[in-house]
């Protein structure tokens, strides 16, 4: 319980900080805090492999890519890291209203004895690299191959985008 409250609160706080932070670099740093807290949540759910993968892939690679692009575009240029103005009151109120409706609708689906019962115990192997690898290369082999194709397409797409046009 303590761990859930701690990680959950840090994740929520960092997410809210991201929403109101105008500087893109600071938003990226808050995103790291959020992702690490979510990794901790994965650990409390017994997903050890995903805990490590989350830190390496998300906090290690994706956010570094964000920061890299910010640096590439120029971290000292206002038009890169800042927003033209704070979001207007009208949009803020409408957005808040939409958020309240969304949260209410989502929370309405919560309930039932199954969801509200304490989490069932699992064997120690659940969520380890071995169990995920076994599932990945047997039951989920086809999606795994498709993922490889997706990465290939993304690589080719980036190469095409990065290619300079002949003048």
């Amino acid at each position: 319980m303590t761990l859930f409250v701690l990680f959950g609160a840090v994740a929520l706080g960092a997410a809210v900080g991201m929403l109101f932070q105008r500087n893109a670099v600071h938003a990226a740093l808050l995103l790291v805090v959020n992702l690490l807290a979510v990794a901790g949540l994965f650990l409390t759910l017994g997903a050890e492999f995903l805990f490590v993968a989350q830190i390496i892939v998300y906090a290690g690679a994706i956010v570094v890519l964000f920061l890299f692009v910010i640096m590439l575009l120029g971290v000292d240029r206002e038009e890169v890291i800042s927003e033209p103005r704070r979001f207007q009151t009208r949009q803020g109120v409408l957005g808040g209203l939409a958020a309240v409706i969304l949260v209410a609708a989502l929370f309405g689906t919560l309930g039932g004895a199954r969801l509200l019962a304490s989490l069932p115990a699992t064997d120690a192997n659940f969520g380890s690299a071995q169990s995920i690898g076994t599932a990945l290369f047997s039951t989920y082999l086809l999606p795994f191959e498709v993922t490889g194709l997706l990465l290939l397409v993304a690589t080719i797409g980036i190469l095409m985008l990065a290619k300079r046009e002949p003048r």
């Binding site: 919560l110 969801l115 304490s118 989490l119």
Partner: peptide
């Protein structure tokens, strides 16, 4: 109390909304 699935789902919904 112990955290239940509903707690994790609620947190997930809040972060998604944000």
């Amino acid at each position: 109390k112990v955290p239940t699935t509903a707690h994790y789902l609620g947190l997930s919904m809040l972060i998604f909304t944000i």
